[in-house]
Design a protein around this nucleic acid. Structure first.
Ligand code: MN
Ligand code: MN
Ligand code: MN
Ligand code: MN
Lengths: 218, 218
DNA sequence: TTAAATTATTAAGCATACTTAAATTAAAAT
DNA sequence: ATTTTAATTTAAGTATGCTTAATAATTTAA
């Protein structure tokens, strides 16, 4: 293939399939910030290429080929993120955007070399699992958004959403990182904001922030 | 800018300017393997963008902005090559193609980080000089193609053309690398092929091969 | 210095990946 | 069950970066 747009469509589809393995066009459009019409267009092409199953007005599915292509894109993305973070020393709030471009520009050979250098990492800097060359995903602990914790519950951060630089920058600043313990001290019904304890220090965070941080579900 | 095509045009123009700082469209077309018509088209766009000076039927020049953009592209390319070769362990015959894609997909910040990691390298794996962030090129020794050496002359390889994988693979195989000494034992007028000595071993090489290897001019 | 060859430009057309607007279908609300 | 809203598709159009064919200008050779 080798087509940045198509690769981005496949990644978005793969990462947003529902429990039936389907996705609706408007979700794709929203994630890619393009019109629904453009998505319809592209879905027809992807179907002709054999990457998706497309029937008008029905949920979109990935074919086996589409899924494996998409999974490989996710692999590329996350291996780049680990590499940029661990080897190049780029902060975790910068690696996602950089990887979003590099993922389309590297040979499988390069990705494999990076993986070896990194000694086969299983998770990216934000806690997302990295598919192996064979397409297998490592197990990831059950988790839920921090926003769902009850008052006085404590849990451990195991994943954060990685697509917004300023979000990551801010949570780093207040001491949130992977494996960090967080306690919810107070939940406010009015705006769902909460007071949390990190390293003994109290912070007020919005519901939207809490929705993008994921903690262990024991 | 951020446009792969335009970046490639600027690189090719920069690397192929004649001594008057000009280049003709057909050279660009040949280097990019596209039609002359496409080049005329794009030159108009690049002129409108302020990157080149374009007057119908005249030699093309880079503006100051165009030159600095192009120089930075060359910098990106060569830093990637060094990184891939030295850090990732990719052989020198593979790094050019990989860098040709990565050069368009990396932030200046990433390039600068790679440069620091590599401790400000001055030459790429093929002996080409790397422009500094400020656009300065390190001095490179005077050199000439191996094909111009006289019989029984010996000289040191300081640069090789990097755009053909099989060429690089072959010359590696027969022991040619940077800083290697080569002696010309015999030159044949018929096809300009020559017998050379590398590490005491004799090899027959074609004129075309010899034209792509550059040795010190003392 | 004229003719021939080469190079450059224009013109028309194509594929890709978008857009907005209008029409159609499906889903949700009453 | 009907209406309203939302999602999807179709249609028409745009910008980009190419193509080939025809034309024009320049360069080279005779
Ligand atoms: Mn990411
Ligand atoms: Mn990530
Ligand atoms: Mn190169
Ligand atoms: Mn090189």
């Amino acid at each position: 293939m080798k087509n940045i747009s198509k690769e981005d469509y496949l990644s978005v589809i793969f990462k947003n399939l529902n429990y039936d393995g389907e996705i609706k066009p408007n979700i794709i459009a929203a994630k890619l910030s393009i019109s629904n019409a453009a998505v319809t267009d592209m879905l027809k092409k992807l179907a002709k290429d054999g990457f998706v199953v497309y029937k008008r007005y029905k949920g979109i599915q990935l074919t086996e080929e589409g899924e494996s292509y998409a999974r490989n894109m996710v692999r590329r993305h996350r291996i780049w993120e680990v590499f940029l973070n661990q080897v190049v020393g780029m902060p975790w709030d910068k690696v996602h955007d950089e990887a979003n471009r590099l993922e389309h520009s590297s040979s499988d050979d390069l990705i494999d070399r990076l993986e070896v250098m990194l000694d086969y990492p299983e998770y990216d800097p934000h806690g997302d699992p990295i598919p192996s060359k064979e397409g297998k995903l490592p197990k990831i602990k059950k988790h839920r958004p921090l926003s769902e914790l009850k008052e006085n519950e404590t849990s451990t951060v195991i994943r954060v959403n990685d697509f917004d630089e300023s979000f990551l920058k801010y949570i780093s600043k207040i001491g949130i990182k992977l494996k960090e313990k967080i306690t919810v001290k107070e939940r406010r019904t009015f705006d769902k904001s909460m007071e949390i304890l990190i390293n003994g220090k109290p912070w007020n965070i919005s519901n939207k922030l809490a929705q993008n941080i994921f903690v262990e579900m024991k």
